[in-house]
Design a protein around this nucleic acid. Structure first.
Lengths: 340, 340
DNA sequence: TTGAAAGCGCTAACAA
DNA sequence: TTGTTAGCGCTTTCAA
């Protein structure tokens, strides 16, 4: 059997509460006993039972991370790993445990979160990505359970979010192409039910408008975050009579698919078609040509979100509801061609 | 306040133990009361408090995943995401929660694991990667705590592991190059303290030996799992008077670095230098030229390891101590050039 | 088939 | 500064 607080108390000739106070660093304990009890804990190899502690304190010192259901898809993408890395680093620094769940369907996802939340296994929830209608968010709101969303929400009620200004980012990407002389610019989008797709599309549209360039709806194609999606988008758009000379692509992986498609068709990048992606993943500089991309600071997104959640959980004052992580355009060869 | 088992019991006019029996699906309960209590639980929106349950049952229904300390490095690599994806999928299917920790140093890692294990927060531990001397493994063994290692261990005592036959895999990779006519083959290795580096190097050496090709120790370079490492290895080896005509590279990301280095030097792949990597990550087919790689089934590695751990934790009979996930060579352009 | 009671290991009033 | 006591919400003997 494991050593308990009672064993320590007995050996030290004090009461369990005294030991408990030493553990929690209560000030109202003589340095002498503190010292003695510490030694005994060491000797006995005592480690507090966090479950017992949780039961009474109603806190768990862990937070839950919910991976959106198409985890396969998202994992294939670098976005996720980076995000998790940021979150994990922050958790590890603050000695907080990170619990991961996911569900194959939206329904399963809510169930899993419910188990975590109502089973009191975590103190807060970190949500990645937001769908336009998100049952998990609705559940969390109804439960009045602390959570932070990585991504923008379009719910009325104020929600803690950490996000990129995706609209501005897409604007910048599009603007960069316009500055290169492009007037015929397409947009390869992501899943239509994600807020990020919507926002980036809006930024793209806005950039065209403000440059007084006509919008070609047939040059906007929805897909997902896999390479294949970009490949498909290419065959779709390039088979049209009128073709763009540049593309803004929702994600680097998708842009790689676009690149593959174009290469197969014998279309040169950037001379015939220029390309800008999002996320600036590590391999973006390895493709030929290297890919221009918007770096959205994924790691920081995760780190900051985790930090914010901890503050909320601890009841510390939080700066504001919505944190925006800055982005920047990383120009590489795939868009380095002046047109016209 | 949350609904407790007592609330349910009161409303149903039974004792808490009866409700508890209904929850655990005990047979010795009349179908009638079972039915009634189920309804009441539903009505009240009762969810069992898993912490309280854990305290008495001494099980948590969660397992811990320990990420090796250079998590940054590993995350940049696709290896990790794939592994986690496999693990998470399996956990999610068996409704088990996954807890992640890491530590900045070995010492911190052991502390983190200790908190999890001795604080009773998890029922088992999943370890990724193994160092030659691994304090975490030693700790877990001493505690007699259930764990599964993804990777080979070179400890005497039998340990549950799920692994690739890295020696054979490296043998196959090297053999493939030999079959293409290469006689001057270098090896870009990983961190020397990892068992995987050792094993792959052994397979490489063995393949050379069995083909009666002399070993050039100066063509073996150690590094880590980052691109930069491959890049550095290149400048090191290619500045030597005698150069290889092919490389076996411990990891695809590293191979990308090698590729970049060679490209910068104006060396053509595969005509001047052929390349084989490991892991067959998604972008391997996107580089130019596409990279030949050993697919080691990372996702399956994770899935299987998680499955094995669950069996162990539940006390179910386990097939054997050491499971090997099969690998296969995926030939692409980077090694498609016959020499001599 | 059900209930009563004890206890998992800890914390937190309230007393002393 | 320290001890006593009463739970936290659940499971599990033992009895009925």
């Amino acid at each position: 059997m494991a050593v308990t607080i009672i064993d320590v108390a007995k050996k030290a000739g004090v009461s369990p509460s005294t030991v408990s106070r030493v553990i929690s660093g209560s000030s109202r304990i003589s340095t002498e006993t503190t010292e003695r009890i510490r030694t005994i804990m060491e000797e006995l190899g005592y480690v507090p039972n966090s479950i017992a502690k949780s039961l009474v304190s109603k806190t768990t010192n862990s937070i839950g991370l919910v991976l959106p259901k198409p985890a396969e898809e998202l994992f294939l993408n670098h976005f996720f790993s980076e995000l998790i890395r940021g979150i994990l680093t922050q958790c590890s620094r603050s000695e907080i445990d990170l619990m991961m769940t996911t569900g194959a369907t939206e329904r399963e996802e809510v169930d899993a979160v419910s188990r975590l939340v109502r089973g009191r296994k975590v103190d807060g929830i970190l949500l990645l990505y937001s769908r336009k209608e998100d049952p998990t968010i609705e559940f969390l709101q109804k439960q009045d359970f602390p959570f932070v969303l990585v991504g923008r929400s379009n719910y009325e009620t104020p929600i803690y979010t950490v996000d990129t200004d995706n609209r501005q980012a897409a604007y910048d990407a599009t603007r960069h192409l316009i500055d290169q002389g492009h007037k015929r610019i397409g947009f390869v989008s992501g899943p239509p039910n994600l807020v990020v797709s919507e926002d980036r599309c809006a930024g793209y549209t806005q950039a065209l408008e403000s440059a007084e360039i006509a919008l070609h709806p047939e040059w906007i194609v929805e897909g997902d975050f896999l390479q294949e999606s970009g490949y498909r988008a290419m065959s779709l758009i390039m088979s049209q009579p009128e073709r763009p000379t540049a593309f803004v692509v929702i994600d680097d992986m998708v842009a790689f698919g676009v690149l593959r498609g174009l290469t197969e068709l014998g279309i040169r990048v950037p001379q015939d078609i220029s390309l800008v992606g999002f996320n600036n993943i590590a391999v973006a500089e390895l493709t030929s040509p290297p890919l221009t991309s918007i770096d959205i600071g994924i790691y920081e997104l995760g780190y900051t979100a985790s930090q914010l959640l901890h503050k909320i959980v601890k009841g510390e004052p939080t700066p504001q509801n919505r944190l925006i992580i800055p982005h920047r355009l990383v120009v590489r060869e795939s868009s380095l061609f002046r047109i016209g």
